[in-house]
Amino acid sequence: MVYNAPAMIITKKKDFEEILFAIGDTRSLFLLGCGDCATLCKTGGEPELKEMSQKLVAKGIAVTGTAVVPAACHELDTKRVLRKHKDEVDKAQAVLALICGAGVQSVGDNTDKPAYSGCDSLFIGNSKRQLHYYEKCSACGECVLNDTAGLCPETRCPKSLLNGPCGGAVGGKCEVNSENLCVWIDIYNRLKKAGKLENLLLKISAPKDNSGLAKPQKLELKREPGR
């Protein structure tokens, strides 16, 4: 299992009380974690499964077993792990998944048991160092990085402005979160350095075309012969 890879889907733990409320009168659970993102976020790795088991047992809820799926968004992986732990899963009334929303649904779609979620999914995160995650891409479907000196205003500007700053920054800091530099000032500085300032900043970016982004999206590639 690779533990030093950067995380992708960033999650945070739900409050334990919220989980208890969600499972209602369920008295036995099988716990699932994920060896990828949730392990890196310390929300659904081995230690978190152990901690959750202890808390549940202390509340009188039986834990019939635990397992960590290598990558829960890989549905076949999830199915394989659930099959391997069939007896423990069968003994439980439900599965509690300490995984991102995609992983929880992998579980729910591959077992007859109800699947409960123990995490909230936050964003696609870049990692600078362990446990520090930053949102830089929101998978918006229409990448503008080639026009914006490689910095994404869709994600890094709270207002997703495509035509320059809102004007609200004070001392270069964003009006919404003063911990952040205004991304448009960064874009400006990079473009200025590259001598591309006026061309790019004076070009009016058209409104984003959202027509292809209706949820749920899918992508099914055809295998090329011989590959």
Binding site: P158, K159, S160, L161, L162, N163, G164, C166, G167, G168, E175, V176, I204, S205, A206, P207, K208, N210
Partner: peptide, 24 residues
């Protein structure tokens, strides 16, 4: 104008739209 972000106001939980920006 663009408009101040909802978290600065009295409905901080409101969804920020910004489908168009001020220039558009």
């Amino acid at each position: 104008m663009t408009g101040d972000y909802p978290t600065l106001g009295d409905n901080p939980g409101a969804k920020a739209v910004y489908d168009l920006d001020a220039v558009q």
